[in-house]
Computed example of a mutant assay.
Amino acid sequence: MHDKCFPPIADAHARILILGSLPGQVSLQRQQYYAQPQNAFWKIMGRLFDAGPERPYAERAQRLVLNGIALWDVCASAQRPGSLDAAIVHSSVVPNDLTAFLANHPGIGLIGFNGGKAADLFRRQVLPGLPAGLRAIRTATLPSTSPAHAAMPFEEKLARWAAVLQNPDQPDPNIFDRGTNRL
């Protein structure tokens, strides 16, 4: 059985796209991005954009949109027993049509990956098919907000996410991927 992602949260004015890998089991059950209560995503969004878990989901999503943030996943579907990214069966991955999404959202100047697995899946499954113009979009691999990535304290995750999302136009090679700020 394949798990399937949700439609993107975005509007035409998006400037930053945050990509996860694939919704976990709690998220799939609740039909909400990052619904696992121990996942730090909404807590971080609360500190950065007043879109915290204390707000209703629709309001959180709207606050992201109002701040130019789009949210989606690399995988449209994939086999994954459980919720761990490490359990995604690579041969089963069907990527989302990020070429069309990025073409329809020309204001996106930064793609932030929620963890290394999302970045890896993007590079393997999406990047080979992206047109050259879309390859110029800067990327940043952010610390995973998953509770499975508990080795990094919340405040450090928050600081790293803030450095990228609050300064998306700063070409800092210590923050962005590959030093060139390009894919």
Rank of each mutant, 00 (worst) to 15 (best):
K4P: 01
C5A: 15
C5R: 02
F6G: 03
P8H: 09
P8N: 06
A10H: 06
D11P: 04
D11E: 09
A12E: 14
R15M: 10
L19A: 07
L19Q: 03
V26Q: 10
L28Q: 09
R30M: 09
Q32K: 12
Q36C: 03
A40W: 00
F41A: 02
K43M: 11
M45I: 05
G46V: 04
F49T: 01
F49D: 01
F49Y: 15
F49W: 02
F49C: 05
P53H: 07
E54G: 14
P56M: 00
P56A: 11
Y57G: 02
R60I: 05
A61I: 00
L64P: 00
G68M: 05
W72S: 15
D73E: 11
D73V: 00
A76R: 11
A76G: 04
S77W: 10
Q79L: 07
G82E: 03
L84Q: 12
I88Y: 04
I88M: 09
H90K: 11
H90Y: 09
V93I: 13
P95Q: 08
T99Y: 07
F101G: 01
F101T: 02
F101E: 00
N104S: 14
N104P: 00
G107Q: 14
I108W: 01
I108G: 01
I108Q: 01
G109A: 12
L110A: 03
N114C: 13
G115D: 05
G116Q: 13
G116C: 09
D120W: 13
D120F: 12
R124M: 08
R124W: 07
Q125S: 11
V126W: 06
V126R: 04
G129Y: 11
G129S: 13
L130Y: 04
A132P: 02
G133V: 10
G133C: 08
L134E: 02
T139V: 07
A140S: 07
T145C: 12
S146T: 10
H149G: 03
H149D: 10
L158C: 09
A163W: 04
L165K: 02
N167L: 00
Q170T: 14
D172A: 10
P173S: 09
I175A: 12
R182K: 12
L183C: 12
